[in-house]
Amino acid sequence: KRYRAVYDYSAADEDEVSFQDGDTIVNVQQIDDGWMYGTVERTGDTGMLPANYVEAI
């Protein structure tokens, strides 16, 4: 699945990823209600991200 960031996010922990509004997130997997795991296409960084900061595309 592919998602697009709708807000900027700065990683708060080493297992999270930072991204900017408009970034595409690929290979996304749902972890639980609030978190997903995926790769930021622009940077190649992979990690956890907050589900409410992205939307499906």
Score class of each variant (00 low, 15 high):
2 R>H: 08
2 R>K: 13
3 Y>C: 06
4 R>G: 04
4 R>H: 07
4 R>F: 06
5 A>W: 00
5 A>C: 08
5 A>F: 00
6 V>K: 13
6 V>F: 08
6 V>C: 13
6 V>M: 14
8 D>A: 13
8 D>M: 08
9 Y>W: 05
9 Y>E: 02
9 Y>L: 01
9 Y>D: 01
9 Y>T: 02
10 S>L: 13
10 S>G: 07
10 S>A: 12
10 S>H: 13
10 S>P: 06
11 A>T: 06
11 A>L: 03
13 D>P: 02
13 D>N: 15
14 E>A: 11
14 E>T: 12
15 D>Q: 13
15 D>P: 06
15 D>K: 15
15 D>M: 13
15 D>I: 11
15 D>N: 15
15 D>Y: 14
16 E>I: 05
16 E>L: 05
16 E>K: 10
16 E>R: 07
16 E>F: 08
18 S>T: 08
18 S>M: 01
18 S>F: 03
19 F>T: 02
19 F>W: 00
19 F>H: 00
19 F>P: 01
19 F>I: 06
21 D>R: 15
21 D>P: 11
21 D>N: 15
21 D>W: 15
22 G>C: 06
22 G>Q: 05
23 D>Q: 02
23 D>P: 01
23 D>Y: 02
24 T>G: 04
24 T>P: 04
25 I>Y: 00
26 V>M: 09
28 V>A: 10
29 Q>D: 08
29 Q>R: 11
29 Q>G: 07
30 Q>A: 12
30 Q>K: 12
31 I>H: 07
31 I>S: 07
31 I>D: 05
31 I>V: 12
32 D>I: 12
32 D>A: 13
32 D>N: 14
33 D>L: 09
34 G>T: 14
34 G>S: 14
35 W>F: 07
35 W>G: 03
35 W>E: 01
35 W>A: 01
35 W>Y: 07
36 M>V: 10
37 Y>W: 13
38 G>L: 01
38 G>R: 00
38 G>I: 03
39 T>R: 06
40 V>D: 02
40 V>M: 01
42 R>D: 04
43 T>G: 03
43 T>V: 02
44 G>Y: 04
44 G>E: 04
45 D>C: 14
46 T>S: 13
46 T>F: 07
46 T>Y: 08
47 G>T: 00
47 G>L: 02
47 G>D: 00
49 L>M: 10
49 L>Y: 12
50 P>M: 08
51 A>Q: 07
52 N>S: 13
52 N>K: 13
53 Y>Q: 06
53 Y>F: 12
53 Y>G: 08
54 V>A: 05
54 V>L: 12
54 V>P: 01
56 A>M: 14
56 A>L: 15
57 I>T: 08
